[in-house]
Amino acid sequence: MSLLATLKDAQKAAMKAKDKPRLTAIRAVLAEVKQREIDNQTTLDDAGITSVLVKLVKQRRDSYTQYKDAGREDLADVEAGEITVLESFLPQPLSEEEIATLIDSAIADTGAAGMQDMGKVMGVIKAKAEGRADMGKVSGLIKQKLSA
């Protein structure tokens, strides 16, 4: 079953269960997917929908941090709930060992020798780990490997 079909089924289930927080988060994803499809005049595949989910989770995390810093626990809790819902549609996260193996193989595949090859390595890894790993942390690990 495609990710879009899964999202639509989850939307129906949330409507039937009258689960407003979950329904709100799912509708946000579906709206963003539809907007991207209209803007780019294409149909998004699972990888495209995953990138939308990653973007929305990142936005929610930023909002959560800002609300926490401002002392708005009520709004921070709403964002935390949406993060949980959105993350449930993302693929299983990679373990530290899997990330290290992925980085090593990407460096070997691209023949990266130094920091000037960072973009090549990130391109290979992003295609394989999008939504399954924090790309900021992955970037830091790649920098450590390439500068060593």
Score class of each variant (00 low, 15 high):
residue 31 A to M: 04
residue 83 I to Y: 05
residue 16 K to L: 05
residue 71 G to W: 05
residue 27 R to C: 07
residue 37 E to T: 12
residue 64 Y to G: 00
residue 91 P to L: 12
residue 73 E to G: 04
residue 74 D to W: 04
residue 14 A to S: 14
residue 66 Q to H: 07
residue 67 Y to I: 01
residue 18 K to R: 13
residue 82 E to K: 08
residue 29 V to Q: 02
residue 37 E to C: 11
residue 43 T to L: 14
residue 84 T to W: 00
residue 57 V to N: 06
residue 14 A to E: 12
residue 28 A to W: 01
residue 35 Q to G: 01
residue 22 R to T: 15
residue 22 R to K: 15
residue 18 K to A: 14
residue 49 I to N: 04
residue 91 P to I: 12
residue 81 G to R: 06
residue 14 A to L: 09
residue 92 Q to S: 12
residue 39 D to K: 06
residue 64 Y to P: 00
residue 22 R to M: 09
residue 82 E to A: 14
residue 59 Q to H: 08
residue 79 E to Q: 14
residue 94 L to R: 05
residue 92 Q to F: 01
residue 81 G to E: 14
residue 62 D to K: 11
residue 68 K to C: 05
residue 91 P to C: 11
residue 23 L to Q: 13
residue 44 L to D: 09
residue 84 T to P: 01
residue 70 A to K: 13
residue 35 Q to C: 00
residue 70 A to Q: 15
residue 81 G to L: 12
residue 79 E to Y: 00
residue 82 E to P: 01
residue 84 T to I: 07
residue 61 R to F: 06
residue 83 I to C: 12
residue 95 S to H: 03
residue 27 R to T: 11
residue 85 V to G: 05
residue 83 I to P: 07
residue 79 E to G: 02
residue 85 V to Y: 05
residue 85 V to K: 03
residue 61 R to D: 14
residue 61 R to W: 05
residue 33 V to I: 11
residue 48 G to A: 07
residue 41 Q to D: 15
residue 22 R to Y: 01
residue 56 L to G: 09
residue 48 G to H: 06
residue 26 I to N: 04
residue 64 Y to F: 13
residue 58 K to C: 04
residue 52 V to T: 06
residue 87 E to M: 13
residue 53 L to D: 04
residue 39 D to Y: 02
residue 85 V to I: 14
residue 50 T to G: 03
residue 36 R to L: 08
residue 27 R to G: 08
residue 56 L to H: 08
residue 92 Q to L: 10
residue 28 A to I: 03
residue 49 I to V: 15
residue 66 Q to W: 00
residue 65 T to L: 11
residue 94 L to H: 00
residue 93 P to W: 02
residue 95 S to Y: 02
residue 55 K to P: 00
residue 80 A to K: 07
residue 35 Q to I: 00
residue 45 D to Q: 08
residue 48 G to S: 07
residue 67 Y to K: 14
residue 84 T to R: 06
residue 88 S to T: 12
residue 52 V to Q: 04
residue 92 Q to G: 03
residue 44 L to V: 10
residue 14 A to Q: 09
residue 40 N to G: 06
residue 76 A to G: 10
residue 40 N to T: 09
residue 43 T to C: 06
residue 20 K to F: 09
residue 69 D to H: 04
residue 27 R to E: 15
residue 57 V to T: 11
residue 76 A to H: 07
residue 40 N to V: 03
residue 44 L to G: 07
residue 41 Q to K: 15
residue 90 L to D: 07
residue 66 Q to V: 03
residue 33 V to H: 03
residue 56 L to N: 11
residue 28 A to Y: 00
residue 57 V to R: 04
residue 40 N to W: 06
residue 38 I to K: 13
residue 20 K to W: 07
residue 36 R to C: 03
residue 87 E to S: 11
residue 34 K to P: 01
residue 20 K to G: 01
residue 37 E to K: 10
residue 67 Y to T: 09
residue 30 L to E: 06
residue 81 G to M: 12
residue 18 K to P: 00
residue 20 K to M: 11
residue 37 E to H: 09
residue 33 V to R: 01
